[in-house]
Design a binder for these strands. Structure first.
Lengths: 199, 199, 199, 199
DNA sequence: AAGTAACCGAGACGGTACGTCATGTCTTACT
DNA sequence: AGTAAGACATGACGTACCGTCTCGGTTACTT
């Protein structure tokens, strides 16, 4: 064996940002959050787990919250995209069920809960969370619902935003309190609040 | 009588627990939470603000979370008692409006949000929060709703617990996301989910 | 078993100083010093061990050092009294051998070493130690030596105080450094420094 | 030249140990010991005085005793080196006088006394003190004396170690008890115990 | 081909807060 | 009045992370 490689070293790319380091940080943060909870999620632990220097984290992310936001945005775009084309009552119901599964059973859902929580503790987190995640997502949800209303698919008594809150709120609340989602909750909410089709 | 009292000293009561110290801690914690948020709520700051030794805090509370739980329990028993006698559709509506006001406008409501949040970050907090606050409160809410159902005041399609989650969830969710509660949300929820009388 | 007494309780006497408490404190301090060293000798530990309230200690002794001084004075008067009547070269030699044994092997000797040590760390200890122990003892030793010189028993080249320092110093130094006393050290010191009888 | 140097900032050296921090700690410890005594020498005070974070101290020293040992070793190598080459009766006398001055008058000598004292209170200190300071120093002193004996410069009746104890003991003892060293003590000890030349 | 610039792991640094321990003062209730 | 019990304010302990900094070393773009 020549001098070619030190044994267990991830080689980095030199001049440009090291994509493998970025991914390692994202995954380390996610894993640690799921394993030990946000409370013991520290930048030093992420760096250790990712095999990355602390400074590499601080170079690219202003705080651990932004790391989690990055993972959350990627994951929720992948797992629970907001239906965009021609939404029907059925597709909304499907979306809410997907959201409920994401938030109660998917490890990635823990990140969302943790960020909602941290936003209570820290104003910067709240700002970032709204600007980067919640705002855009709500906009797409509102559009989905508005189109459905215009198409006559659903006819809620409340405005689009308030209706989404009334639908999503119980799901998030159950997830936050650790209660398993009661059977039929999503369906009943959809039936009672969207009054699909008729009155 | 010359040396009767040294001027600026809160005398403590000796062998028994100092009630004034207990209250000072509770209020200091509450004030600091409202002023600076949970993120910068430290035991040292509480002790400073309360004019109390750190050890006095650790003697009586295992963590700052338990301090907040104490204030929350006292405050919410005072401000938003669960109606006990002969609940009607109207009293339930009134209770939910009170709860919404508590959680969105009352400083003491911040404590509830902070504890829901911290329960996401720390398992011990979750346990304590459920055992000492959420469990008992939910039990009383369930009883309230069950009695109203038995009395024919309301007729929800879901079970008592699920119905409470569907009613309370949106309120808490709006508070957590900092959105102001949409006009008419509580009323619509009551109307659509409790189906008072029949349909 | 009458109703007279709770089982393992030393009853206290009410109005006058409780002699049994005094002795319990003295013995507890001594025992703890020998068992764990001065470093972990605390007033609270003494109180626990003696089965006595902390305040009872503070009422009668200004510090733990004074407790140790009390035990040291009683013990060294008992174990290594300074020969008073008609001192001879032989009785001085015997005294020094006794002192050496006390300081290297007797548990009570540990108290002397601890107080010499603590006197380096704390000025009040130094003052108290000199006033209550070292001063009086040195006075008696000087008198012993002076009488022996006047009687022609010994003829040191140095003054009485300096000679005692030269005799006692090596013994204490060996004890402090934990070295076992070299064979023949005391005898050689006596022979070489006191030049008994002749020149 | 505007940004040439930020004025009052001790820049630290990055990856490697900061030598100026090391020295600041050493001097702070030394100064505080001399000013206030070992009793009020705390790690926090050292850190404050040195302008250093407490953790920087704990990173490099396991306890304040080791800090003092470092200063003692450096200082006594500088101030009272053990004569190595061809020791004579005169050089031994000179060494003892230097040692006496060090221990009674030099501020650095206080460190030696404090460590001898602390070794009585704490077993770890005793171990460290012997291994790092007393052992090596005694070895060099023994060698000095052995060579002088072999060269016929001196002829003590005791072994080399015991003789050194008999010479050094009184000096240390006087320093510990705060008595000023009696005039002629060192000379008389040398004369009577080393019996230089003949008998 | 040599020089430069941006990235990387490593880790020391000054800080803040943690939760624990001992201090010496104080009050209560009992004997 | 002396005592056991124990709460209290104070302050040091040693630990864990924070976010900033500098070090050497490694590519990959210049020139």
């Amino acid at each position: 064996m020549p001098a070619a490689s030190s044994p267990s070293r991830r080689p980095h790319s030199g001049n440009r940002r090291d994509e493998s380091a970025r991914l390692a940080v994202l995954h380390a943060a996610d894993d640690l959050l799921v394993e030990n909870g946000f409370g013991s999620l520290t930048v030093e632990a992420i760096a250790r787990r990712a095999g990355v220097a602390k400074q590499t984290i601080y170079r690219w992310w202003p705080s651990k919250v932004e790391i989690l936001l990055d993972t959350l945005i990627e994951d929720s775009d992948k797992r629970i995209p907001v239906p965009a084309e021609k939404p029907t009552a059925a597709s909304i119901r499907r979306y809410l069920r997907g959201f409920a599964r994401f938030v109660t059973r998917d490890p990635a859902g823990k990140v969302l809960l943790a960020l909602i929580a941290e936003a209570q503790h820290d104003a910067d987190t709240a700002t970032s969370f709204h600007k980067r995640y919640l705002g855009p997502r709500r906009a797409r949800e509102r559009e989905m619902l508005t189109r459905a209303i215009e198409a006559g698919e659903v006819a809620p008594r409340l405005g689009a935003d308030a209706t989404m809150d009334a639908l999503v709120g119980p799901i998030v609340y159950c997830a936050l309190t650790g209660s398993s989602l009661p059977r039929g909750l999503v369906d009943t909410l959809v039936d009672d609040l969207l009054r699909p089709g008729t009155d």
